[in-house]
Computed example of a mutant assay.
Amino acid sequence: MKINYEDDDKVEVPMSPLIDCVFLLLIFFLVTTMMKKWEKQIPLSLPSSTSSLSTVQSGDQPIVLSVDERNRIYQVVNVDAYSGEGTYVPITDLSGFLGQLKQKYGTEIAIDVSAYRTVAVDDVINVFDACQIAGFDQTRVRLGSKPPSDELQ
């Protein structure tokens, strides 16, 4: 007796699950490429180690602004070059303070925004925005020590 196997053993791959997978991958890649555009909206240029050393060696000390957890802004004066600690002077009007800096030094002076690790990023970005609106281009961020909030209330 002869059995015909050709007609019964045709194996087919169902196409509808494959099409679903392709559409899901397409959506995934479209969403991830859109996220890359959102991440690039804040331009951040970090200084090289040689540029920060040349600023300290040339005698032009940057203006150091410190932000605490309560969004209070301080100017750090008498900064030690190695430890980064100094005396904290509260700033009540940031735009007025930046205007005075602009009149006294011009916009070529470097401004370092020092923030402790528990400070919200929005607070630091607001200080960066204020510096940019005032015309300062050399604004940098650095990890700073925690301001003595208890003494300055």
Results as ranks from 00 to 15, higher is better:
residue 107 T to F: 00
residue 45 S to V: 14
residue 2 K to G: 14
residue 81 A to P: 04
residue 20 D to A: 11
residue 32 T to H: 09
residue 101 L to V: 03
residue 120 A to P: 10
residue 40 K to A: 15
residue 2 K to S: 15
residue 143 L to C: 10
residue 43 P to M: 02
residue 41 Q to R: 10
residue 79 V to D: 00
residue 101 L to P: 00
residue 50 T to V: 11
residue 88 Y to E: 02
residue 122 D to T: 13
residue 103 Q to D: 10
residue 58 S to E: 06
residue 153 Q to I: 14
residue 101 L to D: 04
residue 141 V to G: 14
residue 1 M to V: 10
residue 95 S to I: 13
residue 109 I to T: 06
residue 95 S to T: 13
residue 15 M to H: 10
residue 76 V to T: 03
residue 2 K to T: 15
residue 11 V to K: 12
residue 12 E to G: 07
residue 79 V to Y: 01
residue 16 S to G: 05
residue 6 E to D: 13
residue 32 T to Y: 04
residue 145 S to L: 09
residue 143 L to M: 11
residue 78 N to I: 06
residue 54 S to C: 05
residue 65 L to V: 01
residue 19 I to W: 10
residue 22 V to P: 03
residue 65 L to N: 01
residue 69 E to W: 07
residue 113 V to I: 14
residue 125 I to D: 03
residue 29 F to R: 02
residue 118 T to Q: 10
residue 146 K to W: 03
residue 95 S to H: 10
residue 82 Y to I: 15
residue 146 K to A: 12
residue 63 I to Y: 00
residue 86 G to P: 03
residue 58 S to W: 05
residue 57 Q to I: 15
residue 26 L to M: 11
residue 18 L to I: 08
residue 1 M to F: 15
residue 48 S to T: 11
residue 34 M to C: 12
residue 87 T to I: 13
residue 92 T to L: 12
residue 51 S to K: 06
residue 52 S to K: 13
residue 145 S to T: 10
residue 75 Q to A: 08
residue 150 D to S: 06
residue 33 T to V: 13
residue 13 V to I: 13
residue 62 P to A: 01
residue 94 L to D: 01
residue 20 D to Q: 09
residue 94 L to Q: 04
residue 57 Q to T: 14
residue 57 Q to K: 08
residue 23 F to T: 07
residue 144 G to D: 01
residue 72 R to T: 08
residue 41 Q to A: 12
residue 115 A to H: 02
residue 44 L to C: 14
residue 146 K to M: 13
residue 126 N to Y: 12
residue 28 F to Q: 05
residue 140 R to G: 06
residue 142 R to P: 00
residue 58 S to Q: 07
residue 25 L to C: 10
residue 40 K to W: 10
residue 129 D to V: 15
residue 131 C to M: 02
residue 108 E to V: 03
residue 26 L to E: 09
residue 62 P to K: 00
residue 92 T to H: 07
residue 59 G to M: 03
residue 77 V to N: 05
residue 132 Q to P: 08
residue 53 L to S: 09
residue 28 F to D: 07
residue 126 N to P: 08
residue 4 N to D: 12
residue 114 S to K: 00
residue 73 I to R: 00
residue 23 F to I: 12
residue 130 A to T: 03
residue 141 V to M: 12
residue 30 L to A: 05
